[in-house]
Amino acid sequence: MASSMFLAQRRWFLSLPRNLSNARFFSALPSEHPVSVSGPQNNVGPESNKFEKASSAPSSLKEPELAKFSAIADTWWDSEGPFKPLHKMNPTRLAFLRSTLCRHFRKDPLSARPFEGLRFIDVGCGGGILSEPLARMGATVTGIDAIEKNIKIARLHANLDPTTSTIEYCCTTAEKLVEEQRKFDAVIALEVIEHVADAAEFCKSLSALTAHEGATVVSTINRSMRSYATAIVAAEYLLQWLPKGTHQWSSFLTPEELTMILKRAGVDVKEMAGFVYNPLTGRWSLSDDISVNFIAYGTKEK
C-alpha cells in the first residue's frame, strides 16, 4: 500500500545524510556530535544564536544535497504540493494521539484544547506539520529537528498564528536534550526511528525525555513483505516518488522488535494501531492492520 511512500517523503529529509556519510541524526551518540547545542534551552536567547550553534549538526551534508532539499523544504506547508500525501495522513496520526493521550492524561476528549498545560516534544518535527496541530490542541510544544532549514521553515510558519507561535523550535537532537535533563509529559517521534543508526539508543533517549507517568509515542514502518512491496518497490522504483535508496528495508523494525527495545528502555507499550490508505477515497484511517505503517503508545515504567 501507498502509506509508506507518503510517510517516506517526510523521512527523506531525515534520511538524506544516510547515503552520504551515515550521519546519525537523532540517535547519534554524543561522541559523534562534537559540536552541538549547549547551554540552557529556555528559549530565551536570540534565535539566531541557536541557528549558529546548531548549524554544525547537518554539517555532513553535501552542498548540492542541501540546496536540493532546501528547495523542497519551502513547500512543507503547501498542502497541494510535494507533501500533499503527508498532509492527508496527518489527521489520522493526530486522531490516534488525541484519543490515546486524552485517555492517558485523563483529559476531556470533547474539549477543543484538551492538552492545555501539558508539555509535548515532537522529535523530528520537519516543517512543523505535527507540532502546530498539537499546539492548537492546547499543548505546550517543543519541536526539534537536526536539519536547520526545517527548523527555520517551521518557526516562520508557526509565528503566523497566535496559537502556534508559542511552539519552541530547536535545531538539536534528542540526546542533547537528555544531556540538558529536559522532561516532557509526552514524547512523540513519528517516522523517525527507522532513520536512526541505533534504535535502542534512540529509544533510551526518548524514555529519558519522558517525565514520570508520561507517554511515549513512536510510529514507523514494519519490516514485512507488504512494506517491502510498497515502501521500496512501489514508492522508489515503480512510481519514483522517492529517490532510490531512501529506505533500507532491513533497517525497519517489526512491532515486536519495537515493543522490545522500548521495554528495555523503560517504556511499556500499551497500545498499537496501524495506518491504512484507501486509494479510492485517498483517505487514511486507523486500523488493526499493522503490517505496513504502525504507531505505538507506551507509558514510562516506574
Binding site: S79, E80, K84, H87, K88, N90, P91, L94, A95, R98, A112, E132, P133, L134, A135, R136, M137, D161, T281, R283
Partner: peptide, 21 residues
C-alpha cells in the same frame, strides 16, 4: 469539528476538500 479535533486550521483547503468530497 473533525478538523478541530486534530488541531487543524479550519480554513485549510485539505480539510474543506473533505466536505466537498
Amino acid at each position: 469539528s473533525e478538523g478541530i479535533a486534530v488541531g487543524a486550521d479550519i480554513g485549510e483547503v485539505s480539510l474543506l476538500k473533505k466536505y466537498e468530497a
